[in-house]
């Protein structure tokens, strides 16, 4: 199997993560496309035998950071309203709707960690590698993301009462 075959096979996974990360279907596919183009330009940096999917998440993370930075959206992401996954005519359950809205209210950093671990089932090490952060930071962001999401979903804004171990 060539690199291209392997990458094509991973597109649905990249799309799923991107959809959860940015919400809007078209913006998510734009992110995937930019990621794929960037991946080809940087393929010489991929170490053979390592997890290609984790490497593509790294590329996507970098592309996304640049996009967010260039759009100066860092401050407006809080409270951003996300579109539902674009299944035309499909009425997503209220629960899913809520979840997506709440997810959008996490910071990008929290959302990335939560999604890589919970949705994509990356190991903490792989998530740390993909995001270029220490594993301790993965754990503390994961903890904050989950607690914030829980508070949002239970309709109790305000800070969690937990002491987060750094």
């Amino acid at each position: 199997m060539t690199d291209a075959d392997s990458i094509v096979e991973l597109i649905p996974r990249l799309r799923r993560y991107a959809r959860a990360l940015v919400g809007d279907r078209h913006a998510a596919d734009d992110l995937v496309q930019d990621t794929l183009e960037r991946a080809w330009a940087k393929l010489h940096l991929y170490r053979r035998g390592t997890d290609l999917r984790a490497w593509l998440f790294t590329v996507m993370h970098n592309v996304h950071v640049n996009q967010v930075r260039s759009r100066r959206e860092t401050v407006s992401l809080e409270g951003e309203v996300l579109e539902l996954p674009g299944r035309a005519g499909h009425d997503a359950s209220l629960e899913a709707r809520d979840l997506e809205r709440m997810l959008a209210r996490l910071s990008v950093e929290q959302r990335e960690v939560l999604l890589l671990v919970s949705l994509e089932n990356l190991s903490y090490e792989a998530a740390a590698g993909a995001l270029g952060i220490p594993i301790g930071t993965v754990m503390s962001r994961l903890s904050r993301a989950r607690e914030k999401l829980r508070n949002l979903m239970e309709g109790s804004p305000g800070p969690g009462r937990l002491q987060v171990v750094k």
């Binding site: 291209a4 990458i7 094509v8 597109i11 649905p12 996974r13 799309r15 799923r16 959809r19 959860a20 596919d29 995937v32 496309q33 794929l36 183009e37 080809w40 996954p85 299944r87 499909h90 997503a92 899913a96 979840l99 997506e100 949705l119």
Partner: peptide, 19 residues
């Protein structure tokens, strides 16, 4: 919530970008 994305047809522009 996001499982259905895996079953969506992949837009051709992404396949092209992957190749």
């Amino acid at each position: 919530t996001f499982e259905p994305v895996l079953g969506e047809p992949v837009p051709a522009r992404l396949v092209r970008a992957a190749r």
